[in-house]
Simulated scan of single mutants.
Amino acid sequence: MKYIYSLVLSLFLVSGLNAQTITGPAGYRVINLGDNGTGDYTRSLILLHEAYNNVTPLSFNNAVGTITAFRGNTGAFSRINIATINTTSAYGSNSGTIQSYAEDSPWKLKTCMYNGKKYMALEVPYLDAYHNHGYQFAGWTNSSAENLKVVNYMANGQPVNQDILTDIQDFNSNMTETHNAKDLNLYANVNIGTNVTSTGYQLQVKGNVRAQEIKVEMDAWPDYVFEPSYEKLSLTELESFIKTNKHLPEIPSANTVAKEGIELGDMNARLLKKIEELTLYVIELKKEVNQLKKENKLK
């Protein structure tokens, strides 16, 4: 009975809250950060928590959760930005990674100096029209200094707060991200390492790709080269083509590859075709050599 009374009392107290911050167990919070305080044409950072400054050991600081930003009403177009952040600073290191969902540009992790202290920060994606509903955080956060504070660094094309906000730099994510799933189905275009959306590609990656195996499905394979009806260039014709074009027939030139890249499956098929033609040339030359040997023996 005492437990039920305590639970009812707790629910009553929670239902009467009307504060900007709701604190849960061990640092879990829902925080209304407000907007940028200026309006349109404003660039802003959100100070997440104090960061290690490469000098003084630091107590536990973190921000793990989601920041959501909205714009929209009868006189303003709809805009939504969402960032899932995982950052921490303690003792002598800073760690962090981010995932963002946006209609314009991605959120970015930064470090900066604010009032003489170093911070892990989040750069708000910029558009002329600001998020008139502000920013909301939900998650687990602690800071030994400012915590989830919005600070502007440019307004109406002019730098602001330069006396207190300095040394804004990119923070490269340094945490390993792993996805373990039995089946992963993506019904969307995915861009990795680039903001440029290119039509016609469901996956676009700017950077290196490493894999244990890549399977390319092909509708056609050049085994027709070995059909008796296939007519290839003579070696004389091939030599003339190479002298004129400086590349093999049906193989793109270096300039074309530099501008357009190559399609992996198509290029493998073209290369195989050239290997098969080369094999036929070798067989023909072998026959000619054997014939010449026979003729020499007869002499």
Rank of each mutant, 00 (worst) to 15 (best):
L238D: 01
I80K: 15
Q136C: 13
L280H: 05
G116S: 04
L122E: 06
L9V: 06
N152E: 02
L203W: 06
T197P: 08
N54I: 01
G200L: 04
T194Y: 08
M267C: 04
K117F: 13
F226L: 05
L280V: 08
D128L: 12
V160Q: 04
Y135S: 10
V151S: 01
D223L: 10
T38R: 14
Q169G: 01
T88M: 15
L186F: 15
Y114E: 05
E288P: 02
E263Y: 09
T178H: 12
N94M: 02
V190P: 05
N296H: 05
N180S: 11
Y28C: 12
Y201G: 01
I262Y: 07
Q202Y: 01
L203Q: 09
A26P: 04
H133A: 14
T74E: 12
N268I: 14
E277G: 08
F77L: 12
V209F: 03
H247R: 06
S15P: 07
L11R: 11
A145M: 04
E263K: 09
Y201W: 05
N86L: 09
G72D: 07
T74I: 06
N132K: 14
E146G: 03
I214H: 03
L298G: 09
Y230I: 05
T197A: 14
T111E: 06
N174I: 03
N290L: 13
L264H: 01
L33Q: 08
P159D: 02
T166C: 07
L122Q: 07
L127F: 10
S173F: 02
K182P: 08
L280Y: 04
W107C: 01
S78V: 12
I80H: 11
I67A: 01
G34Y: 06
N185D: 15
V8S: 10
A254W: 00
G116A: 02
L148V: 03
G16K: 08
Q204Y: 09
I46E: 06
S253H: 03
A211P: 00
P159Y: 05
E284F: 03
D223E: 11
P57Y: 09
P222Y: 00
N32T: 12
L292K: 10
L280Q: 12
G16Q: 12
Q169P: 02
I214C: 00
V30P: 07
V30F: 08
T66L: 11
D40N: 15
D170V: 07
S59I: 13
R43A: 04
